[in-house]
Design a binder for these strands. Structure first.
Lengths: 411, 411
DNA sequence: ATAATTAGTTTTCCGCTGCAACTTATTAAC
DNA sequence: GTTAATAAGTTGCAGCGGAAAACTAATTAT
């Protein structure tokens, strides 16, 4: 029953290797001497660790840096060609797969429509097919593939690599690790979509040095990835982060949430609520270019389309976003009171409308935060937008390499 | 800039010493052999660690345990006389000081009325006076005093031992560590009252083996101590846990909270709101024994008095608690959605009415939790009741000893 | 009385980091 | 153009801590 709460020499080595590697990841380019100062480790220890990382092909020397007197420093960087990563995002109506290098730069990607409610086996086979294609691309790039990351809605068993329950997909107990590793012989990781997105921000995005931040995934629902005390918080059963079902008092609560309650923040600020807002406004038929755009593109009313209208100056579209932003701001204010986070990052399908949502969100937060204390949190739009979870799937694999570098063989 | 993210041999030793000590703390009595199995450490390593802990007087052998064949085991326990601890709780109108042994058993205590708004210096001197008295009591018990713990409302700088800001006391930047350690030459720790209470539950109370739980401190306001991933979460500036200002939709929001918003959970479920509920009921003058009790005891309307009435079967008192419990349950349901905790523990002045609040709280949670997922959390009343923060002050000192046992000298 | 079983200790070994002395590579000064 | 100063990085050694295996110790079963 040893849950690795104890330590030994191997643990010391792994801890220091990982820490040095992470420092190079965030601070590169950097010299051994700088690393010694930064980590507090002895120069000789840093040299030994760096040699190790170079032998494992994770780090490379990329030049010299002469600053004034003394021997010039050898600069170190992450070797972005250390290996490639395959990421898979499972959505309610699509599968997305990407191949990236070690730094998360996308080399290849594909997105296909899919219907999980139709036939689970079929969708899994469809996914496996794309993954195999991704593997051939990755192998062309280099011999080493670090693994496959899978981001999915719902709860997961990280250790066993099993999807426990995804209400949106109507799936239960899908042993993804078993299924995928049998077919690919690769290491397979699985994580909840919002959690994965949070890790992507920590590793590749806007929360690189950040110990305490929240990732808010806004789409069909509103879910959260909670990154606290420098690590992901999952709760007792992995259900933590259902932030969308906190009530807000913005508008009289007419809508009943699918959770059965009234007033849930999610019902005022999710994808569908914005579409409804626009529809309601169109019915009173004010001047709006939305119907024109719909006709031109033969498209139903979608968030991207509303965003397009807003970009063209359409006031109905803009005000719909502003209304949703108001609800979102109230939700964020509640989170700030509870978590006092350094940052809140908005991602997912809705984040493409960030420019219209953000000012209202910030404004509402300012009005609803506790006045006595100064606890402002930075509110940001995820640089990965709707791909936050896909990049997150990549990130969980990269994070494994950064956490356990000695699992890789020396050459 | 080494924030101790690296490891060395000394760290290994401290980690293992601490882990073994904590195991003995929670699992005692226990043998070296059992510890080896439990921790995954080698038998010889466990022996060496235990010898170390015995030399530091933290652990003692307390007997044998023969189970079937084989050499009987030597049982180990925490030495409760390892040293004593002084705890101080600062309240809005009182100071409470206690002396305990290493296991948190109270040896001596004193509570005095105090008025922080009147004169800060005076109240600090008053506190110091009681602390000095506590020290003489502690010294009589044994030579070693582990330190002084201070629990206070507001935010604190743990590292510097400074009270940053306590709105309720109207205090700012009080350097308690400096003030107290100069006078006592003891190690001084400071912590927010709700956080301290959470630690007390983890160490001495109902959350001993629990990685994820919330402590809800209900009194004048409603504050939370968030224990997540096995450690306290404080947020970016130490303001995390302001859970009382999440809105609920229970009743039409008439009251404006001191935070400036409407609908805050705290306004429906704090001490004052219950007193108001009873008052409102008395005005419609139903049959209630509350006025009689007030006259008999020459007491204003207080929570203990209302509790007394409820115990005597008074329906107005009971229903007031039930109404508040309903609001509290909605607040708890929101927390469960966000945190998926293993437990929620209710403490503070209001917890004396736990018997009346608990059934309604549980009922409301059941009705408001997400139905799709099974995420029930255990709801408990703190065994320390209104003393939760005082015991918390003790706990932060004990926790320091458990975390860094090698700071203590060998005899 | 002997074997079996379990608890705990002793001895040896390996690997880790820290430390100090060293080499290497540059700039600044005369 | 040589020497001193400075900073980067390496080498060798010491000390420490945990793992493993062989040991001793103390009991029960036969």
């Amino acid at each position: 029953m040893n849950n690795k709460n104890t330590a030994d020499q191997a643990f010391v080595r792994e801890t220091n290797l990982s820490f040095v590697l992470r420092q190079i990841h965030t601070q590169s380019p950097i010299s051994r001497a700088q690393l010694a100062v930064l980590t507090g480790l002895n120069k000789s220890t840093v040299s030994s660790l760096v040699d190790d990382l170079i032998e494992r092909n994770l780090v490379c020397e990329t030049g010299m840096n002469s600053t004034g007197a003394g021997r010039p420093a050898t600069l170190l960087e992450i070797n972005c060609n250390a290996g490639s990563i395959i990421g898979v995002e499972l959505g309610v109506d699509f599968v997305s797969v990407a191949v990236t290098d070690f730094l998360g730069n996308i080399i290849w990607r594909r997105k296909e429509d899919a219907d999980p409610s139709e036939d689970q086996k079929k969708m899994i086979n469809q996914t496996l097919q794309i993954v195999k294609e991704a593997m051939t691309v990755a192998k062309k790039k280099g011999p080493r593939i670090f693994g496959i990351g899978l981001a999915t809605p719902g709860t997961v068993d990280l250790k066993e690599g099993v999807l426990i329950f995804a209400p949106n997909l109507h799936w239960r107990n899908v042993p993804f690790r078993k299924l995928f590793s049998e077919q690919t012989k690769l290491k397979v990781f699985i994580e909840n979509d919002a959690n994965a997105a949070a890790i992507s921000e920590h590793l590749f995005g806007t929360a690189r040095q950040c110990r305490d931040f929240l990732f808010v995934f806004a789409g069909v629902g509103i879910g959260g990835g909670l990154f606290l005390n420098g690590e992901l918080y999952r709760g007792k059963n992995g259900y933590a982060g259902e932030i969308g079902h906190s009530p807000i008092t913005a508008e009289p609560s007419q809508t009943i949430c699918h959770c059965g309650n009234r007033g849930c923040w999610e019902t005022y600020a999710n994808q569908y609520s914005i579409i409804q807002r626009v529809q309601a406004r169109l019915e009173v038929k004010r001047s709006s270019i939305v119907p024109k755009l719909m006709a031109e593109q033969k498209s139903p009313l979608t968030i991207p389309l509303i965003k397009q209208a807003a970009d063209a100056g359409d006031m109905e579209a803009r005000e719909s976003f502003i209304e949703a932003g108001h609800a979102m701001g109230q939700g964020f204010a509640g989170l700030i009171n509870i978590f006092n986070p350094e940052k809140i990052i908005l991602g997912g399908p809705l984040s493409i409308a960030g420019d219209y949502l953000l000012p209202t969100i910030k404004d509402t937060i300012a009005r609803h935060s506790l006045t006595e204390i100064d606890q402002q949190a930075e509110v940001l739009i995820s640089p990965f937008g709707p791909d936050a979870s896909l990049i997150g799937a990549i990130a969980i694999v990269a994070d494994d390499v950064l956490s356990f570098p000695s699992q890789l063989l020396k050459k």
